[in-house]
């Protein structure tokens, strides 16, 4: 199993301009992991971007939060471990998709609908947060 695992990472500030780098990292995964179904990767990308957006928008102190994104691909799943240096967050992943005319509030429910596992907690390092997002591969039933 361990030999079958590939890891991709990036580090930087959690600011809007860095979101393109998140897309680029996922594009690299798509280019290098030929066994990955393109729909799985597209849906996973949407989930990762929503969580990255959340850190960019709500991470405090604003503009000073750093992050590290680690993507791990195995035969069974694709996982994102996102470590941010911001103040500890607590989030309700059970929140429902808002009404049709709402202009915000869809990011977290959307991310959850695309993943098999989603969690956030204080990072083991003692400061910041660890977001963990996992999508199992080959099931395509999260749609």
């Amino acid at each position: 199993m361990a030999g079958d695992e590939r890891v991709y990472r990036l580090e930087g500030f959690a600011v809007p301009a860095e979101l393109d780098r998140v897309h680029e990292l996922i594009e690299r995964v798509g280019a290098e992991e030929l066994r990955l179904d393109s729909t799985d990767l597209m849906l996973f990308e949407m989930a990762v971007v929503e969580i990255a957006n959340n850190v960019v928008e709500h991470g405090r102190p604003a503009g000073e939060v750093r992050w590290q994104l680690i993507l791990t691909v195995t035969a069974e799943a694709i996982t994102a471990d996102l470590y941010d240096s911001g103040e500890v967050v607590s989030l309700d992943f059970a929140r429902a998709m808002p009404e049709e005319d709402a202009e915000s509030g869809r990011g977290i429910p959307l991310a959850k609908s695309l993943l098999d596992e989603i969690s956030v907690g204080p990072s083991d390092s003692g400061s910041g947060n660890h977001w963990r997002l996992l999508r199992r591969l080959g099931a395509s039933d999260a749609e």
Partner: peptide, 15 residues
């Protein structure tokens, strides 16, 4: 690529 912020902008524009 469109995210939920893009959706929000379209809904706001529709209104």
């Amino acid at each position: 690529f469109m995210d939920s912020s893009g959706l929000g902008a379209l809904i706001g524009s529709l209104k």
